[in-house]
Amino acid sequence: MTITVNGETREVQKSALSAILDELGYADQAVATALNGEFVPAAQREVTSVHPGDRLEVVSPQQGG
């Protein structure tokens, strides 16, 4: 299915958020996620289903002021 990951269109095979993160190469990275603008805690990723057209945000620590 087609979803949007960090603003870019991506094709993914899986449907669970945790599996999609693995598929996209985030497997062992320290990231936080939001799906369609709502925060998804790490503990909820396995039971969170992603649907075609969903918007996924994947973020990590960065410099800030």
Partner: peptide, 18 residues
């Protein structure tokens, strides 16, 4: 002060910074 930003799969930028 720190922030969060979009990270690409396979990147280590966030972890290195943290």
């Amino acid at each position: 002060t720190v922030s969060v930003r979009r990270e690409a799969g396979g990147s280590r930028a966030g972890e290195d910074f943290w």
